[in-house]
Simulated scan of single mutants.
Amino acid sequence: MSLSAGRGAVRELPPVAARVDDALARLDAKIDWLLALSPIGNAALWESFEASGRTAVPPLSYIDLDLDLHQTRQELLALPIEEIESPLLSGLLAEKQRELDRMLELVRLRDTDGFVNASLDLFGGVDPALSELARGILQDVGPGAPLEADTGIDEILEAVNAEMDWYRERAPDFHADVVVDTDLNSMMMVSHGTFYVDGNLRLPAARVQPLLQHEIGTHVVTRHNGHRQALTQLEVGLAHYDALQEGLGVLAEYLAGYLPGERLRVLAARVLATEMAVNGQGVPAIFDVLHETHGLPTDDAFDVAVRALRGGGLTKDAVYLGGLCELVEYLHAGGDFEPLFVGKFALTHRKVLDQLLDEGWVAPPDLLPRYTTLPDFPERLSACRTLPVGALCHKEPAT
């Protein structure tokens, strides 16, 4: 890929392509499948699990989307994909249309016997090589140095605001809404351009910046850069973009100076939990293996187990370690780093992005993550081009 950082102009899409692109982006925002599959009442869920002697959990509860699934699917499938003027754009937009249809299926089949198959269709499962890597990490990678969780939500929000200000100084239109949620099934997450943070969160100070580089430096920055492209899908995400986004997010933690071993272990645990969920294992069995066999702390083991059973068995969590593996393989082969930030796409799209560049529909990234300005960033990136995935972690924070 020949893109490099800097501002650039793009030409408009042809009329039908632009109309379909806009409609797909609007439908993507409407189909907030991840929100529909995020359990609520997590504190009560743990209390019930603990009261049962860690042998049972009540059914997971979710919010219901204000969405007519049948009408939305009709609208999605009625889009005039075959009338798009460019075969290149038609192929990309048809691929996104198919993905959104599968996402509707996930929401429709939530907590039914058909959910796991729908999840496998969309995200795939766990291949033997990834399973072997995950088990190796859980066996061989130890936790980092013990650090006190001395940073609470107020200090974290100060860091979030400072981070946003840093980007706005370079691009005044840089933006993300920030929402504090005390019933969040993640420490932090970005969904449809909104940055969510757990209101009960406490972290070691050394972990704050790496996690912000994961969420803001990856997910918000690529959305910002994608917003400047002619193809709106580069803002909301081309089909199957999750693996590269999450791979970049995890790598950002390493490049920002502190990816502790326990973080890598959690990603490996998610792979194992996904595999067990697909095979019909429930939260108690997954928790037991992660906590008793592999030594994960109770909160991590329970969180990973619940995540794996979202909707009835959501296989997306294997994407984090899988995406990191694909990204590391790309870097080992000499792949360019900066073009990965032009928007949200899959590594399989990089040849297509070159064609979009040639057609004038893609410009270089407007912003790069803040960690790329660190003095030793070139050395850290160089290490990522040689180290195996299992070695991409730190015993202590970088100074």
Rank of each mutant, 00 (worst) to 15 (best):
M1I: 03
S4G: 12
G8R: 14
V10I: 08
P14L: 02
P14F: 00
R19H: 13
L27F: 08
L35G: 11
L35Y: 15
A36S: 12
A43H: 00
G53Q: 12
G53Y: 09
G53L: 09
T55H: 13
L60S: 01
L65R: 07
L65V: 09
H70A: 15
A78E: 11
L79M: 05
S86C: 04
S90H: 02
R102M: 12
L106S: 06
D113F: 09
N117R: 14
A118E: 09
D121Y: 11
F123I: 01
G125R: 11
E132H: 13
G136K: 08
V141I: 07
G142S: 09
P143Y: 03
G144R: 05
A149T: 06
T151Y: 06
I153V: 15
E155V: 06
V160L: 08
W166L: 08
R170K: 07
A171Y: 04
P172M: 11
P172L: 10
M187Y: 10
G193H: 04
T194E: 15
Y196S: 03
N200H: 13
P204W: 06
I216H: 09
H219S: 06
V220L: 15
R228G: 13
R228F: 04
R228V: 05
L234V: 00
E235F: 02
G237D: 00
L238A: 09
H240S: 02
Y241G: 05
A243N: 00
Q245V: 10
Q245L: 02
E246K: 14
G247W: 10
Y254Q: 06
L255V: 10
G257C: 07
Y258H: 03
L264W: 12
R270T: 04
V271W: 13
A273E: 10
T274E: 14
A285Q: 15
F287R: 04
V289C: 12
V304M: 05
V306A: 02
K316L: 09
E329A: 15
E338N: 06
P339N: 11
R350M: 03
V352L: 00
Q355I: 03
L357F: 05
D358W: 03
W361T: 01
S382P: 07
S382H: 10
R385M: 02
C393V: 07
